[in-house]
């Protein structure tokens, strides 16, 4: 197989928060009827994580499963294990109207870490970041492009965007985390 490289190869920026591109992350788009028992069973079998409810994200040892829309999940696993996970999901859902696709190399993942991480996100998105808590997935826009984020803990955001705009998202995140630009509200 070819040598997989992430969008920004782990670029980092240290401002009043740290912005880091997380390198290779396995990501699977899973679409289908999220209410179906077979779907919940397949997700549980492959990732060991329970099916998230509306707007939620569940994390476990086997990966992270995020609710993206009424018929779409984002499954995050090890990059190396993504193809195997897709095969398992496809097999488990063979009789369902569902589709699993490995989108690892079409997305980029960032972590924004620091006490004022909420502030960095609030500068770029119209979402009510003050109301966010770990376990909530928010799909929104980051400045001018689509993006999604959730909190890993009180001081860490995990941000997912399209690979084609990874450079842009890194730049706007870094700019929002620039020392001296703290607003001090969140």
């Amino acid at each position: 197989m070819s040598n997989a490289v992430s969008a920004l190869d782990g670029a980092t920026y240290q401002g009043f928060c740290k912005v880091q591109e997380m390198g290779l992350v396995g990501m699977i788009t899973l679409r289908g009827d999220l209410g179906a028992a077979a779907m919940a069973k397949a997700v549980k079998a492959v990732t060991g994580v329970a099916m998230p409810g509306q707007g939620a994200v569940t994390t476990g040892k086997g990966g992270t499963v995020a609710w993206m829309s009424p018929d779409e999940l984002l499954v995050m696993v090890d990059h190396a294990g993504a193809d195997a996970a897709v095969a398992k999901l496809s097999k488990a859902l063979a009789k369902e109207h569902a589709l699993a696709v490995n989108v690892s190399d079409a997305r980029a993942v960032f972590h924004v870490t620091g006490q004022a991480a909420r502030e960095v996100m609030a500068k770029l998105s119209p979402a009510d970041v003050s109301a966010l808590a770990p376990g909530i997935m928010r799909r929104t826009r980051l400045a001018q492009v689509a993006g999604a984020f959730h909190m890993l803990d009180e001081g860490t955001f995990e941000v997912v965007c399209f690979r084609s705009v990874a450079g842009y998202v890194f730049d706007v995140l870094a700019n929002a985390a620039k020392p001296g630009s703290e607003v001090g509200v969140l």
Binding site: G55, S69, P70, D128
Partner: peptide, 8 residues
């Protein structure tokens, strides 16, 4: 009503 958030 689809994802339950207040959308700007």
């Amino acid at each position: 009503p689809n994802c339950g958030v207040m959308a700007d």
